[in-house]
Write a protein that binds this DNA or RNA. Structure first.
Length: 484
DNA sequence: AAAAAAT
């Protein structure tokens, strides 16, 4: 490896066919990095407010007419120019090599003043990237709020907060969690604020948070924060309280075209964009199946049968409504399963207790609404079940929501299983649409083969898909009885 | 329909 460094130092950087360079290009071939400079403005984008109608045809922000320029990935954390005490924290957490998004985003955050829109698949280290970026940019001698980081839910904010505490344990930097019911000091001097939009906005408005020295504004799950009615207004309002020259960093696994306009408004130039193509969004290591339950009533029966076979790992079961969440939880508990539940109708305390028990492994199953669909990182989870189909506000199948839900497994190169329950023609069509949209097979798992799920989960590393159904869902509609 | 402010 000393050869390589030797080569590079003697190489003219305009020689593009250099072998070592080619290797590096290979390495980051999935990334498109575009630098937008001041002058190249004036692109008129005609988007109808924040409608997501075009979702089915286009999922990813692509502005490919601008020259793309690769930024070479750096191999080690040492090379990233992090403060020594941060590097210590990195290694204390057991991280050896920066992930691709970390290797690509951190140089932009640390060595430039660019704003950033960064896309990377679920479970690839986005939190590590912006967390190190935030900690590194704080001036430890200034006891004022310098960074504000937003996420859509209490649990995700808590997770980010915990991560910042751990990785920053050798710094003097004290972050503060700003969510409902959190313990907040009389005067806020924390250099990093992490929280949900409502509470952070409230504190800025009432001047409990001094925005004067804020130089960095980070949004995790950015497309959701600026794409949801209500959330969007809160986020824009928060930015309006911050200094005009604040750096804006947006992170997510998905950026649909519906949020393009808001993002362009929020993220001033110069900015760097790291984007993924739609075909690169889905994690290969997640085995995706659907189970045909015939009727809606059968779903809970099949669910408990399914869990009867499973002896390893933990699972998250996603449902559509809070009501389903508590009724299904009750049902499963009556059947004797160790389940937790999580939804927005619970008190903060109940939510805390519930997720804590699940994280500790005291309950093996978490039944949840979409509140946990994004960002939540629990490594023991190897199975995601879509008890209810992921659908958007119009009742249409939602590939983005699906992607985020199943992204609760398959984190950091691990493998996992995602199962979607279907019960009628509509739901079958919906999962078919999602499968087509993501260009990923979602095979049928026959009910009489449920038992084999146990083996699949036990041998996740082998990743041999079931061969029951050779076709993808694109053709399965014709194989079931059509009564129409 | 869910989430996010507190009411």
């Amino acid at each position: 490896m000393s050869e390589q460094t030797h080569n590079e130092t003697t190489e003219n950087n305009e020689n593009e066919t250099n072998e070592t360079e080619n290797k590096e290009i290979e390495d980051i071939k999935n990334l498109e990095i575009e630098t937008h400079k001041d002058e190249e403005e004036e692109e008129i984008i005609q988007l109808k407010s924040d409608q997501l109608e075009d979702l089915e045809t286009e999922l990813v922000v692509q502005s490919s007419d601008l020259k793309s320029q690769p930024i070479y990935s750096q191999g080690t954390f040492e090379e990233l120019n992090l403060k020594p005490e941060l590097l210590k924290g990195v290694y204390a957490m057991g991280f050896n090599k920066p992930s691709r998004i970390q290797a690509n985003a951190l140089p932009v955050i640390i060595n430039t003043k660019n704003n950033l829109v960064a896309q990377s698949q679920s479970g690839t280290g986005k939190t590590g990237a912006f967390t190190l970026g935030m900690l590194n940019c704080v001036d430890p001698k200034l006891n004022e709020t310098q960074v504000i980081c937003l996420s859509p839910t209490h649990e995700l904010s808590t997770q980010i907060y915990t991560f910042v505490c751990k990785i920053g344990q050798f710094t003097n930097i004290q972050p503060l969690l700003v969510i409902p019911d959190a313990i907040i000091p009389q005067t806020i001097k924390s250099q990093i604020i992490i929280g949900t939009p409502g509470k952070v906005g409230d504190f800025l408005q009432t001047k409990k948070i001094n925005s004067k020295h804020v130089k960095m504004f980070v949004l995790d799950e950015a497309d959701f924060l600026v794409g949801q009615r209500g959330m969007k207004d809160q986020v824009l309002k928060i930015q309006s309280y911050l200094p005009k020259n604040v750096r804006v960093l947006l992170f997510s696994a998905t950026f649909s075209v519906g949020v393009d306009e808001v993002i362009n408004r929020m993220v001033k130039e110069p900015n760097v964009r790291i984007t993924l193509k739609r075909s690169e969004l889905s994690i290969d290591k997640i085995l995706q199946y659907y189970i045909n339950c015939d009727t809606s009533d059968n779903k809970s029966i099949i669910l408990s049968e399914l869990f009867g076979y499973i002896s390893v790992g933990q699972a998250i079961v996603f449902v559509q409504t809070r009501a389903t969440c508590s009724s299904l939880t009750k049902l499963m508990m009556e059947e004797g399963f160790p389940v937790s539940q999580l939804h927005g109708d619970m008190t903060t305390d109940e939510r805390d207790q519930s997720i804590k028990r699940f994280k500790e492994g005291k309950t093996k199953i978490l039944i949840s609404t979409n509140v946990t669909s994004r960002g939540i990182d629990i490594l023991q989870v190897s199975l995601v079940i879509n008890y209810d189909m992921p659908i958007d506000e119009n009742g249409k199948p939602d590939p983005v929501l699906y992607l985020h839900r199943i992204g609760r497994v398959g984190r950091f190169g691990r493998s996992g299983v995602a199962i979607t329950l279907v019960h009628d023609e509509t739901s079958l069509k919906q999962i078919t649409r999602i499968s087509e949209h993501l260009s990923r097979p979602v095979n049928e798992l026959q009910i009489d083969k449920l038992k084999s799920l146990s083996d699949i989960l036990k041998n996740l590393k082998d990743l041999t898909p079931l061969k029951d159904s050779p076709t993808t869902t694109t053709t399965t509609t014709t194989t079931t009885s059509n009564s129409k």
